[in-house]
């Protein structure tokens, strides 16, 4: 009897050891997977966006409406459980480190369009325990809503407040569900994904398309692209750039 118990413990221990070893084996590079990813990397892209703060029309929310409509972003109706992919906030709140009377007076009362910065060094990706959020080769910080366990570590890690959590089932709060895009389920984190589904079809992001004032410039970071030209020829700010996240949303002053 006593030996049985000891044996049981030993077997249990070995089982846990084996369970622990399995993921380690999974981490070993597999030739097939490696080939596939290097093939898609052949054409390295880097998406980026420039936002012209002065061109962005005060009080206009066309981009927000377009984005939230096509992505089935719910309108929860309270601050506590709010879900948003793009939104506007004051200049002072968007760039708290720019405490400078001169700049503040120039942009006094201006609101700034905010969204996921699709960082080159994204802290949310670093902390995610399941790789439910990761950075694609083209720079888009993606979300896999199938894999997210809802630990909200990414929300703690994101310096921009770009991530929203589904505290409850979002469906009853979507005015009109767009069939062509999935909704989310409760218990997962969501955010802007640069309209990756539209990019795959060759379209530009919905917010860029919706802007009547040309305030949003989107494209690849290549010298011949407009986004590259405006960023390199204007003075731009990036939100909390001092944190080393390398945000890829550039604000033109």
């Amino acid at each position: 009897m006593e030996i049985d118990r000891r044996k049981f413990l030993q077997i249990t221990g070995l089982t846990f050891l084996a369970l622990a070893a399995k993921p380690a084996f999974d981490l070993l590079p597999r030739p097939v997977a490696a080939n596939a990813s290097s093939a898609s990397q052949a054409e390295a892209k880097r998406w980026a966006m420039a936002i012209d703060i002065e061109a962005c029309k005060e009080g206009c929310t066309d981009c927000i409406t377009a984005c939230h409509r096509i992505h089935n972003v719910p309108d929860i109706g309270n601050r506590k459980e709010e879900i948003k992919w793009v939104w506007k906030d004051s200049f002072a709140n968007s760039f708290p480190e720019q405490e400078n009377r001169l700049v503040e007076s120039t942009f006094q009362g201006r609101s700034v369009l905010l969204l996921c910065n699709h960082c080159d060094n994204p802290p949310c990706v670093r902390v995610c325990p399941t790789q439910a959020t990761w950075k694609r080769d083209d720079g888009i910080v993606m979300m896999d809503y199938h894999r997210c366990i809802g630990c909200r570590y990414c929300m703690a890690a994101c310096p921009y407040g770009s991530r929203s959590f589904n505290w409850k089932d979002p469906r009853p709060y979507i005015n009109e569900v767009d069939d062509s895009y999935p909704t989310r389920t409760r218990g997962v984190v969501e955010k802007c994904d640069f309209c990756e589904e539209r990019l795959a079809r060759g379209d530009i992001p919905a917010c860029v398309e919706a802007c009547k004032y040309g305030a949003l410039i989107f494209g690849e970071m290549k010298p011949e692209m407009e986004v590259y030209k405006v960023i390199s020829s204007n003075f731009t700010l990036r939100r909390k750039a001092e944190l080393g996240t390398q945000p890829q949303i550039y604000y033109i002053l």
């Binding site: 809503y145 569900v177 767009d178 069939d179 062509s180 895009y181 999935p182 909704t183 989310r184 389920t185």
Partner: peptide, 11 residues
């Protein structure tokens, strides 16, 4: 299967 928690059934 929880597919339909998120994926829509066409109207």
């Amino acid at each position: 299967p929880n597919c339909w928690d998120c994926h829509n059934i066409p109207k």
